[in-house]
Nucleic acid binder design. Structure first.
Lengths: 333, 333
DNA sequence: AACGTTGGATACAACGTTGTAAAGAGCCGG
DNA sequence: CCGGCTCTTTACAACGTTGTATCCAACGTT
């Protein structure tokens, strides 16, 4: 049987509240009383009932992290950092997989698991600003990734346009001219893709290289399979790229695979660049050249913003923060 | 402001309990009453306070999944399956990273976050049977992975010895004779490593091949770096293996990397085999030959066992379940 | 017409905790 | 030795929900 404050109180011969005071570190407790209570707590192996505490306090100490898929290395790494950052605030992180489905994302935005979580850190794929606006009385939310225009929530991201521009410029500096892009999305939801495409285009234009439509390869889910398929399509169409900028590392790993199958050497025949800086890219053959955001700092800032919302006043205007990134050179470009 | 049952009740002109009945799908509610209540719920955007509900019901609807590291693809994939399986029971999964540290694992075993979770699915790395025995009044627990001898908890795993034997036999069938093993652990905690080594040894012995100590490479954390380092060590020592059985896929990916750097061809010069069946292995160059456990079923069974513990009587004897695996052939062996 | 039975709704108490207000104990200064 | 302090402890009432017991009305049966 589980013990309650009451059981501890009876054993120690004090009131329930005194035990509660000891548990919560209230200073004005006589040393001998405290000792008695602590002895009783230890003897009964008392652990507070968090449901009751949460109800009483109105806070749960749980924050949610909503990501599309944990199996994607980028999000797995991000999750790890968020958990670590949250631990500093003594928060527990509940991880939600949305699978990138608009329906599930909307549920997160509207505050699924209401009252169970104090706040949400949300990395949306398909969510639009309209979706966000509807959830009026939800828990505080911090968005990761691209800015959802005029969204009512705090927001942390890297400068996608600048990063994509940097990477494309790097490929140009290597002497490449027929630079393909894999991961293009023309849907309204593909904000990330649009930003990275914008950076890509900007770099080409700045170098006086025309954008060749045939070098733009769409991909919806940014999985390895799509990276491989996109690469094969490029080769089959005779587009003859001398470099490929993949909009994330997973696509790039797939592209590497397809190039290998086609008997092309990387980077000699085709240079490959990725985006996200996932661990896998350090061990692929060849290792990936990629944009590595400072994920640890990203997580840290997101958690801190949430903390500020939780302790601060209600009406504070949404904040926007940029996090540094690094162009990490591997062997692939 | 957030609304409570009371607010809904007042608006609908019924008692609090009636609203509660509607919310919980209690059948004996007149249709018109139900309609009134539902209108009020919608109008006020009422959401039940889960802390209060949990307190009252004595259950939280949250189960924990404790894994060493989410960044490791095997555990990320596992987590995804557990979340899906838990959703069928309308459970929320809280994921705990232990980082494989004995201290953190012990906390999980003892029931950290007591009263917040209804049960734990636990994939321990370093935990011993003694650690498990101490947590007497903790929430029900299901262990994933190797059997902790005489542990008092349910347990789901694949037959590691058989799987390792199969894989080694496969390498032998390919004509390999100098088969190295990367991932050997001699510590008390390395149960998994011991089982896989046992399978490896058994297959060699069955084929009349002596076990060569110099082909056994230790690795403690089974990361890519260790796989690469282990492979390099083998080559540097002049051990001249014609195949490597890595005790997990991550090690294998590292080994592939090291072989590539050494200018050796896979599988022509050295065949490489892994263990775990992670997604990455399908896209590496070359693709990995690996032991792929049925993770979905593993997760399903673990969740079901937990469900049985939660609804069943207290003293049921610990169950043990084996899950199928598949030797998935890639290009590497 | 009296009866038990069922459907539908309600009041009340309880889950275990903590904030509030207040009471008792001890002390100091006047 | 009284009044006003501080320190320590306490009783009580919440937090929002749901289980139990109960009540009333409508119904069918005898």
């Amino acid at each position: 049987m589980r013990h309650r404050l009451k059981d501890v109180a009876e054993r120690a011969g004090v009131s329930v509240k005194t035990v509660s005071n000891v548990v919560n570190g209230y200073p004005h407790v006589r040393p001998d009383t405290r000792a008695k209570v602590e002895e009783a707590i230890a003897a009964l192996k008392y652990r507070p009932n968090l449901s009751a505490r949460n109800l009483r306090r109105g806070r749960t100490g749980i924050i949610a992290l909503a990501v599309p898929k944990l199996g994607l290395p980028y999000f797995a790494e991000l999750a790890r950092h968020v958990v670590d950052a949250a631990a500093k605030h003594e928060w527990t992180v509940l991880i939600d997989q949305t699978n990138g489905s608009p329906e599930q994302e909307r549920m997160v935005a509207l505050g699924i698991r209401d009252h169970l979580i104090d706040g949400v850190i949300f990395s949306p794929l398909a969510l639009t600003a309209a979706d966000l606006a509807t959830g009026s009385q939800r828990a505080p939310m911090v968005l990761l990734g691209e800015r959802v225009h005029h969204g009512p929530a705090d927001h942390v991201a890297i400068d996608n346009v600048a990063a994509a521009r940097d990477m494309t410029a790097h490929l140009i500096a290597l002497g490449r001219r027929r630079i393909a892009a894999i991961g293009v999305q023309h849907t309204e939801e593909g904000v990330t893709a649009r930003l990275r495409l914008a950076g890509y285009t900007a770099a080409l234009t700045a170098a006086g290289i025309p954008v060749d439509e045939r070098l733009l390869v769409p991909a919806s889910a940014w999985h390895r399979t799509e990276g491989a398929a996109g690469m094969r399509a490029l080769l089959a169409a005779g587009a003859r790229p001398d470099a490929v900028f993949c909009f994330n590392d997973t696509l790039a790993l797939g592209a590497l695979r397809a190039l290998h199958e086609a008997g092309l050497r990387v980077p000699d025949d085709v240079a490959v660049a990725g985006f996200d800086g996932i661990e896998d890219g350090r061990f692929s053959v060849p290792t990936l050249t990629t944009i590595a955001p400072d994920k640890e700092r990203l997580a840290q800032i997101a958690v801190d913003l949430l903390a500020a919302r939780l302790s601060g006043p209600d009406g504070a205007p949404p904040q926007e923060r940029l996090v540094d990134y690094q162009l990490r050179r591997g062997e692939s470009a």
